[in-house]
Simulated assay, not measured.
Amino acid sequence: MAEAAARPRSPWVVLVAALVGIGITSAAGRWQYRKGATKEAQHRAMLERSALAPLPQQELARSDEQAAAQHYRTVRLHGHWLAARTVYLDNRQMDGRPGFYVVTPLQLAAGDAVLVQRGWAPRDLRDRSLVPAVPTPEGEVELQGRVMPPPARLFDFGGVAGGTIRQNLGLAAYSREIGMPLRPLSIQQATAAGDGLQRRWPAPAADVQKHYGYAVQWFGMASLIAGLYLWFQLLKPRLRPSVSS
């Protein structure tokens, strides 16, 4: 029994384990690298499109393809807030603090609406069910902002999809909920409105170095596995002095 327990593992088992480890860590490294490169490309597009003249309201995208071509453009809008439809997106950070993104549909003259990310507000750390009161003017308002994709989705444990406080907000489902078509994008409001909300929106490339750093770590682990395999399975056995019988 002791001899069986001490029997060395088959070199094929070690080879397969090494290849699996190298494959997993290399794939993770490539994923992090692609994510960093995507954010860099988004940042370049934002800089280029932000320098363009503000987008006229009548040209605001109505399809996904048009919206993708308008992301990061500035736009001036006129419309009416649908204040009763305001939603607080939970677990959103600004400057490292937990809080909400306050989003409200803005009804446009065309009869449809666009989702506006109005700003960020801190959460009440003593009572998570409380939301800050955000004054919303009645009548027609004018605002300037940046065309963006819909609010980013966070991991959801299957909580309540409706209500004032939500983890995520899907445009299609929300459009059915409010009974009004929504443009396939959102607007990050830039103009101050005296509502107490903060608007230091993070740039797409703000954490790009984090992804590149993770990529280096994963590629380093893949190299380490390969190096250990080469040393212990190929090089070290050949360097052992032969033992005369």
Results as ranks from 00 to 15, higher is better:
Glu3Arg: 13
Ser10Val: 13
Leu15Lys: 04
Ala17Tyr: 11
Val20Asp: 10
Val20Cys: 13
Gly21Ile: 05
Ile22Glu: 15
Gly23Cys: 07
Gly29His: 08
Gln32Met: 13
Gly36His: 05
Lys39Trp: 12
Glu40Cys: 07
His43Ser: 10
His43Val: 03
Met46Trp: 15
Ser50Lys: 14
Leu52Thr: 11
Leu55Phe: 13
Leu55Cys: 15
Pro56Val: 01
Ser63Glu: 11
Ala67Ser: 04
His71Lys: 05
Gly79Lys: 02
Leu82Gln: 09
Ala84Ser: 14
Val87Cys: 08
Pro98Arg: 03
Tyr101His: 15
Thr104Met: 11
Ala110Cys: 11
Gly111Ser: 09
Leu115Asn: 00
Val116Thr: 02
Val116Lys: 04
Gln117Ser: 15
Arg128Thr: 10
Val131Ser: 00
Pro132Cys: 01
Pro132Ser: 00
Glu138Asn: 04
Glu138Thr: 01
Gly139Met: 04
Glu140Tyr: 00
Val141Phe: 01
Val141Leu: 03
Glu142Lys: 01
Arg146Tyr: 05
Pro150Gln: 03
Phe155Val: 11
Phe155Thr: 11
Gly159Cys: 00
Ala161His: 04
Thr164Cys: 06
Thr164Asp: 11
Thr164Val: 13
Ile165Glu: 00
Leu169Asn: 07
Gly170Thr: 00
Leu171Trp: 03
Ala172Gly: 09
Tyr174Lys: 01
Ser175Trp: 10
Glu177Asp: 04
Ile178Gly: 14
Pro181His: 05
Ser186Ala: 14
Ser186His: 03
Ile187Lys: 01
Ile187Met: 10
Ala190Phe: 09
Asp195Thr: 00
Asp195Leu: 01
Gly196Ile: 01
Ala203Gln: 12
Pro204Ile: 07
Gly213Ala: 06
Gly213Leu: 07
Val216Ala: 06
Gln217Tyr: 08
Trp218Lys: 04
Trp218Glu: 06
Phe219Leu: 11
Gly220Asp: 08
Ala222Pro: 12
Ser223Glu: 00
Ile225Glu: 12
Ala226Ser: 15
Leu230Lys: 01
Leu230Gln: 01
Lys236Arg: 09
Pro237Asp: 02
Ser244Phe: 06
